[in-house]
Design a protein around this nucleic acid. Structure first.
Lengths: 213, 213
DNA sequence: GTCTATATTGTGATAGAC
DNA sequence: GTCTATCACAATATAGAC
C-alpha cells in the first residue's frame, strides 16, 4: 500500500511535474488510503520528496488541500454527468448516465473517495460550500429520475428522492472495493450496475420475456 | 450533533448504567460522528461524565474500543442474518434476508457504520481478525446468491461475487444518509431496497406483467 | 522553492492519592 | 472506580537563511 503511494509519487516526480501540481493528487491518494485525519504533513512531504516545511510555500493549511480535493471532485463529476444528460431522457440515456458516473468515480477514484468519505474534516465554512455542491449533484440525478418517472421509464411507487438515493447507494459504495486491474474492468462494472439498477437482480424468467430490451 | 451525543450520554448516565457498559455505545456514537482518528479520549470522557484518566481503568487503549465495536458489529450481523437463511432459499427468503440486513444496520447504526468505515484504524493484528469476520459475512451472502442463481431465482450472467457486491453496495451506503424519524422508516427502507435489488427501478410495463409477484 | 530549526498545541497514556 | 497532575511524543504551522 505504501509502495503504491510512493511509486506513484516517484513517477510524477521523475516526470518533472512541479510540486504545486503534485500536491492535490498525491494528497488524494494518501487521504484515501489512511483517511484525512490520520494523514500527516510529514507523510505527504515524504511522498512529494520535500521537507515538511516546504509544503507551506504552496498551501496555507492541510485542510485547504482537502477542500481543493472536494471541489475538484464535485466540479468534475457535475460537469461530466451534465454533459451526458439530454433535455428529454430515454432508458438508454439513464444507462449512459450511470455508466458515466461509474467511469468517473473509478477513473478519478482518489478524489471522489476522499470527497465522499472525508468531507467532515472540512472547516464549517468550507463544509457548507462543499455540501451545497454535493446537493446540486444529487438534484441533477433526482431531476433525471423524476422526469423518467413522469415518462413511464422508472417506477413511481417511491419518491424520486429515494430512487435517487438507491441509485447513489448502488454506485458509490463501489469506491470501497473496486480495484482497477481486477477481473472486472470499469466498463463491465458500469454495465453491471446500470443493469442491476434498471432490471434488478432477479432471473428474467421470473419477470417476463421483455428482460434485456 | 453534539447535542445528540451528550443527551444520549446523559440518558444512560441517568439510568445508572455502569461506565464500563456505556463506553462502547458512547464511543460508537462519537466515532461515527467525528471519525475514529478525530475522536479524542477527552471528548469520550466528557460524554461519559468522567475524567480522561478514569477511562483507563476500563480500557487499555483507544484502539481497543474500536476493535470491540468492530467485533460487536460483525458478530451481531452474522448472527442475525444466519438466523434468517433457510437451507434452501426462495425469492421470499432473499427478501427477508435483505430486510433483516437493513433492519440490523439501521437499528444498530453507530456500531455498523464505525465497523464499515473506521476499520483501517485498527492495529494490524486486530485488522486481520476483523477482516476475516467481515469476509465470513460476505461469504454468507455470496453463498445465498450463488444458490439462488443455481435455483434460477437470481440472474447468472455475472459471478455470485459481483452480485453480492452489488447488493452490499445498495444496502450499506444507507448508513451515510438514513436518519430514523424521517419520512421513510426503517421497514419501508428495507422493502424499497429489497424491491430495487430484486425487480430493479424500471417501470413494470417495460419488463412484463409478472412484476410485483 | 526548498531548507534547518523551532514554536505551540493537542494527543494517548501513566503515576499515585483517595 | 474516579480523581489531580503530569509525562512523552506527534501534530500543524512558522521564522528566517539560502
Amino acid at each position: 500500500m505504501n509502495d503504491a503511494l510512493s511509486s506513484e509519487a516517484d513517477v510524477s516526480s521523475a516526470a518533472g511535474i512541479p510540486t504545486s501540481e503534485r500536491i492535490l493528487s498525491t494528497s488524494a491518494a494518501l487521504f484515501r488510503e489512511k483517511g484525512y485525519a490520520s494523514s500527516t504533513t510529514r507523510e505527504l512531504a515524504e511522498l512529494l520528496g520535500i521537507r515538511k516545511a516546504s509544503l507551506y510555500h504552496h498551501i496555507e493549511t492541510k485542510e485547504e488541500i482537502l477542500y481543493q480535493i472536494c471541489i475538484a471532485s464535485l466540479t468534475r463529476i457535475i460537469d461530466e454527468i451534465s454533459k451526458s444528460i439530454p433535455a428529454v431522457v430515454s432508458q438508454d440515456d439513464l444507462r449512459t448516465m450511470i455508466r458515466s458516473h461509474v467511469a468517473e468515480i473509478v477513473g478519478t477514484r482518489d478524489f471522489h473517495a476522499v470527497m465522499l468519505t472525508e468531507m467532515r474534516g472540512l472547516t464549517p465554512d468550507h463544509l457548507v460550500e462543499v455540501v451545497a455542491l454535493r446537493d446540486r449533484y444529487e438534484e441533477l440525478i433526482r431531476d433525471v429520475v423524476s422526469q423518467s418517472q413522469a415518462l413511464g421509464i422508472l417506477r413511481d411507487d417511491f419518491a424520486a428522492k429515494y430512487l435517487m438515493l438507491c441509485l447513489l447507494n448502488l454506485l458509490n459504495w463501489t469506491i470501497f472495493w473496486f480495484k482497477p486491474g481486477g477481473d472486472l474492468d470499469a466498463e463491465e462494472l458500469g454495465d453491471l450496475l446500470a443493469s442491476v439498477f434498471l432490471e434488478g437482480a432477479s432471473q428474467m424468467s421470473t419477470l417476463g420475456p421483455e428482460r434485456g430490451l
